[in-house]
Design a binder for these strands. Sequence first.
DNA 1: TAGATGACTCACA
DNA 2: ATGTGAGCCATCT
Length: 100
Amino acid sequence: MKEKVFEFLLNVPKGKVVTYGQIAEYTGNKKAARAVGNILHRNPDENKYPCYKAVDSKGNLSRNFAFGGIEMQKEKLESEGIEVRNYKVDLNTYKWNETK
DNA sequence: TAGATGACTCACA
DNA sequence: ATGTGAGCCATCT
């Protein structure tokens, strides 16, 4: 299951973000978003998996980011070319559709 | 091994 | 808008 999360994460193109629910849905359990968040929180390979691309349903950045705080996540997202407004991203624009 | 917690999300009052 | 309850999975204690 975690492997699916990581795979999904690696599949996320640069400049795009995904929601926990979306990842959970991909892994097979839409309601397992909690587990997804937990997996990313205890992210085994921070430098390998773009965990900062994971945002909540509202496009809000992670509530308790693991490294340096959400500010760092914001910076990273901006580095990807994503416009971050007050620790929030426009899902309508940046949320990635795997089928797309 | 079992119980509790958490980067979540949705629904209802 | 704010608060509570339910549902899943991985990790912690």
